[in-house]
Design a binder for these strands. Structure first.
Length: 997
DNA sequence: ATGTAACGGGG
DNA sequence: GTGTACGTTACAT
């Protein structure tokens, strides 16, 4: 008999030779050894509610009718879930031999005479076991038992359990997960289509490991001999041999997590299909009796590998980051600043059959595609949140990564319900869902309050304080004891002490009985407070991160409960409960608004669900903070516990366009105690959208920046006009105008003619074989000419080569104007005004709003650096002026004076944007000289040589240096000095011309 | 306004 | 495995 501790990774069950279910737990100890634990004796069961007085008779009938299946019927006293129950009710506990039989008989039982309802008859057996034994996913277990050896296990050891105990742990023990990322390359027989797994072979499988495997971080399997010396590859005679070796490597490395990019929808299904081709069983998991389980949905696949976690980085990134596109190349660039190896997939067959250099290129391409997802996963810590969620809600890691909110909530409801003898209903069938849907149409689900925004821009003396209710809905549920278990169903019960919601629903007070949801939420909230406290004292960054992930997981869990009560497919659906929560929410926010306005006399300019934004007038951030704190404390005092209005942040300037759409420039107190401008928070204002070209995103961002950081509406308008002017003059670089759309099927299959489809046809006629094929992304720009927009879509390269003219009208109307208008309209600037390029802002009005600080509007800094010289635009006559050609400080056309401030700003901007571009670090191999833009994972070149970093100076810096003496005479000494300072700083950075790090 | 078709991303 | 099931946006009506 031994005792062993392990983190629970997976759980399922097997049926032994005498047809009894045996629970199987797979876990990993702190020593890194994996273990399979078999638990015997746990039996499947469910509950039946019979007509009062009929219990015995129904029990007998069930036992009789399902002889051989039902192994026992007993009686237990339980609380029914819906409505406040004064006492427990007698229910039948029906036990069956094997788990699948529950499903088999539950509908029959449901229809039997005398049966009212069946409870908890749809809980997967492994969860039934975990729930009943208080075992949570990814939690620490202490197992007592004997070591055994079966024919089913692949783990380091196997045990037959005598006892499984949960170890209470505040901080998760350190168990290092082994992760493996992989990627496949195929050889398509038809280069117009995606490779077909029924016939096109896999030619390469690349793998990345963390931690390393046999000293290797990566390994590439190649299905044919390669006549070149390449490190970390293995070659085979054909696909089958390679596939077998791949499975062998999985077994040998034994990863806890398998990842990759889009593996759920591509690599894994493809791989499984190829394995089937050779009749190789897909035993990639940690058990020998089960292979990989593939569940294909409409457009979604779930893949389960026993004992291992499958996580698709693409999915994780999609749920964590809002990006324009989710291609690996784009995602890697945005998140970890790395790119894929440049290679057109159409060239794969050519490279595959090519010379040693070509195949080398293909191998390194594949290698990188396995490395990138793993790096993203690690660097962005994409797993932390899920592992903590698993520990908080109890689901297995695998199910948390994929599953929706409802499973997590139910896991907790079942666990806490079990402790209190509350049984829960089964999930609703179609009929019940339909009934609920109809009910919802009649009695609608009322949402939260969104206060009418006082549209406009706030800056200068105005400061906006943001106050938030900490976990509003969870707090309300706790404060007013709202739950399906406390809801008073009949008026007759109203002599019980209760609370009436604004909607009229009544809930017994917590002194009578605490509700299930309030209990769970109260514990979660206390737990979160504890975790946050621990975070404050935690010095170790790794542990701090983990605690942070945990408090986030708890927050996510808490916020899921409200939604669950109004979810059509919930086990317990109660509009009365859902509406009571939002009802109290509306009451709370209205009350808060009223108090702030009446007691303090401040203006509430906006509020949504659980937050209010208060306008105060002060230049002093300390004072603003003081006011915020005061409001927070005093209002919280007026509300029942645990409702808490927290002072969240100060916006130095704030722009609100409409409900749910605003942007604010945050100020925060730095370590030096001083206030600093911080990030711009944005809500509902999008600057990146798939259907917009880059120009639009860039313009939107710049406008917001000018509005919030410089508080200069005129300048923002002017900037927009400049862009429009540039667009009309064809000065906008073509790549900023490119739109992309992917060709999902053959052109003729499209009904509506879309630009990229028409273009695809055009290209096919023009260049024949090189034309884009199905599944490819097509880049296009809209050019001038006749016909619909679709007919005027053109290939950017073709446009370049033939000097076609861009349809500036289209880009203005369809791309730039819509978002710009939405931004400017609430500020009282019409479309007309935006477009009126020639009528600039009068100097008079400009000076009125901005003092004499900026007569010029500086062109977008990015563009400036690419222009020949540094330029400013004269505000009076709108001419673009070259700083070098300026005689004195007068505009050569209208002779209005140009302020030194403006020139200084122009130069400074040029310097700053130049600084960003100033240094470029390149990495090159000391052996073969091949250069990389980023260091490789291994810090080694593909030839095996060491990578050495090289620092180079960009030209733009030199340009500014050249310009400086020419303009310095136009500047005040202070400005000159400031510029010199910056240049000096730049010199310092650049000074060591070559160094290695 | 409201319903329906298209698309993603992998090679 | 005692489980089901995308989510968003553009275009057409």
């Amino acid at each position: 008999m031994i005792t062993r501790e392990m983190i629970l990774l997976d759980c399922d069950y097997i049926v032994d030779s005498s047809n009894r279910p045996v629970i199987r737990l797979i876990g990993k100890g702190t020593d890194g050894r994996t273990c399979t634990v078999y638990v015997e004796g746990f039996k499947p069961y469910f509950y039946v509610l019979a007509r009062e007085g009929d219990e015995r008779r129904v029990a007998e009938r069930i036992a009789e009718r399902f002889q051989g299946i039902v192994t026992g019927v007993s009686f237990e006293r339980k609380f029914l879930p819906l409505g406040y129950q004064r006492s427990k009710r007698e229910v039948l506990r029906v036990e069956v031999r094997v788990p699948t039989q529950v499903k088999e008989i539950r509908d029959k039982v449901r229809k039997m005479e005398g049966v009212i309802e069946v409870f908890e008859a749809d809980i997967p057996f492994r969860y039934r076991y975990m729930i009943d034994n208080g075992i949570y996913g990814y939690s620490l277990l202490r197992v007592k038992g004997e070591v055994i050896k079966t024919s089913l296990g692949k783990t380091s050891m196997e045990m037959k359990a005598h006892e499984v105990r949960v170890v209470e742990d505040e901080v998760a023990p350190k168990v290092e997960l082994k992760m493996m990322s992989f990627d496949i390359e195929c050889l398509p027989s038809n280069d117009k289509l995606l490779p077909d797994p029924s016939k096109d072979p896999i030619i390469i499988i690349s793998i990345a490991f963390y931690p390393s495997f046999d000293g290797k971080d990566t390994l590439v399997l190649v299905s044919r001999p390669v006549n070149a010396k390449i490190d970390n590859i293995e070659c085979f005679n054909g696909e089958e041999e390679m596939l077998r070796r791949f499975l062998e490597i999985i077994d040998a490395y034994d990863p806890d997590l398998i990842t990759g990019y889009n593996i759920l929808n591509f690599d894994l299904p493809y791989l499984l299909r190829r394995l089937k081709e050779y009749n190789i069983p897909s035993k990639m998991g940690r058990v020998l009796d089960k292979g990989v389980q593939l569940k294909k949905g409409e457009r979604e696949t779930r893949i389960l590998i026993p004992g291992r976690i499958v996580a698709d980085v693409q999915e994780l990134v999609k749920s964590e980051f809002h990006l324009k596109r989710y291609t690996l190349d784009h995602v890697a660039e945005k998140l970890i600043n790395e790119k894929k190896v440049e290679l057109d997939y159409k060239d794969i067959p050519k490279l595959w059959n090519g010379n040693s250099n070509e195949i080398k290129k293909l191998i390194e391409y594949a290698r990188k595609d396995a490395i990138l997802p793993l790096k993203i996963l690690l660097e962005k810590r994409l797993l932390d949140k899920y592992l903590e969620l698993s520990r908080v809600c109890g689901l297995l890691p695998q199910d948390v990564i994929y599953g929706g909110q409802s499973a997590k909530v139910e896991s907790l409801l079942l666990r806490y319900g079990k402790k209190r003898d509350i049984i829960l209903p089964c999930k609703p069938d179609d009929q019940e869902i339909e009934r609920r849907r109809k009910e919802r149409e009649k009695k609608e689900l009322k949402g939260a309050t969104v206060l009418e925004p006082k549209v406009g821009i706030y800056s200068g003396d105005d400061k906006i304080l943001v106050l938030d209710f900490r976990s509003l809905y969870p707090s309300i549920i706790i404060a007013y004891n709202i739950c399906f278990t406390t809801l008073l169903l009949e008026d007759g019960d109203s002599e019980v002490s209760h609370i009436t919601a604004p909607t009229g629903a009544k809930f017994v007070s917590k002194e009578v009985r605490e509700g299930l949801m309030p209990e769970i939420l109260r514990e979660l909230m206390e737990f979160r407070v504890k975790v946050k406290k621990m975070m404050k004292e935690e010095k170790d960054p790794e542990r701090y991160r983990q605690l942070d992930a945990r408090q986030l997981a708890i927050k996510i869990m808490m916020n899921s409960f409200y939604g669950y009560t109004g979810y059509l497919k919930a086990r317990i659906y109660s509009l009365d409960v859902a509406n009571a929560i939002t009802g109290f929410g509306r009451q709370t926010i209205e009350f808060t608004k009223q108090k702030v306005e009446e007691t303090y006399g401040y203006e509430v300019i906006y509020g949504d669900t659980d937050s209010i934004m208060v306008r105060i007038k002060t230049r002093n951030f300390d004072e603003a903070e003081e006011i915020g704190r005061k409001i927070s404390i005093e209002i919280s005092r007026l509300l029942p516990e645990p409702l808490l209005l927290e002072f969240e942040k100060i916006y130095k300037s704030f722009l609100i366009l409409s409900k749910k759409r605003y942007a604010g420039l945050r100020v925060t107190r730095g370590d030096d105690g001083k206030w600093h401008e911080d990030v711009i928070d944005m809500k509902g204002i999008e600057t990146v959208r798939r259907e917009w070209c880059d120009l639009v995103s860039e313009v939107m961002e710049t406008i917001l920046d000018i509005l919030l950081r410089e508080n200069n509406v005129e300048k923002a308008v002017n900037y927009f006009r400049t862009v429009v002017k540039d667009l009309k003059e064809g000065k906008i670089p073509l790549e900023k105008l490119i739109l992309t759309r992917s060709l999902s099927k053959l052109p003729k299959e499209y009904k509506a003619k879309q630009p990229h489809v028409v273009l695809a046809e055009k290209l096919r006629k023009r260049q024949g074989k090189m034309a884009p094929s199905v599944g490819e992304r097509i880049a296009f720009v809209i050019v001038k000419g006749k016909g619909s927009i679709a007919e005027r879509a053109e290939d950017p390269e073709y446009v370049m080569e033939n000097g076609l003219e861009i349809d500036d009208e289209y880009y203005l109307e369809k791309q730039l104007l819509q978002p710009a208008e939405r931004l400017f309209k609430p500020l009282g600037i019409s479309k007309k005004e935006l477009l009126n390029v020639n009528v600039g802002v009068t100097l008079q009005s400009f000076l009125e709003t901005n003092g004499n600080s900026g007569v010029m509007s500086v062109r977008s800094s990015m563009e400036m650096i690419f222009d020949d010289n540094i330029q400013v635009v004269c505000e009076r006559c709108n001419t673009t002026l070259d700083i070098l050609k300026l005689k004195g400080r007068f505009c050569p056309k209208c002779f209005s004076q140009i302020s030194e401030e403006a020139i200084y700003n122009a130069i400074l901007r040029a310097i700053l944007s130049g600084m960003r571009e100033l240094i470029s670090v390149k990495y090159s191999c000391e052996k073969c000289g091949r250069s990389y833009s980023r260091p490789t994972l291994t810090q080694r070149c593909m030839c095996g040589g060491r990578l050495v970093s090289e620092i180079s100076i960009k030209e733009s810096y030199e340009k500014i240096r050249k310009v400086k003496p020419a303009v310095s005479s136009m500047l005040t000494p202070e400005h000159r000095e400031a510029i010199d300072e910056v240049l000096k700083l730049a010199d310092l950075i650049v000074a060591p011309k070559s160094s290695s790090s």
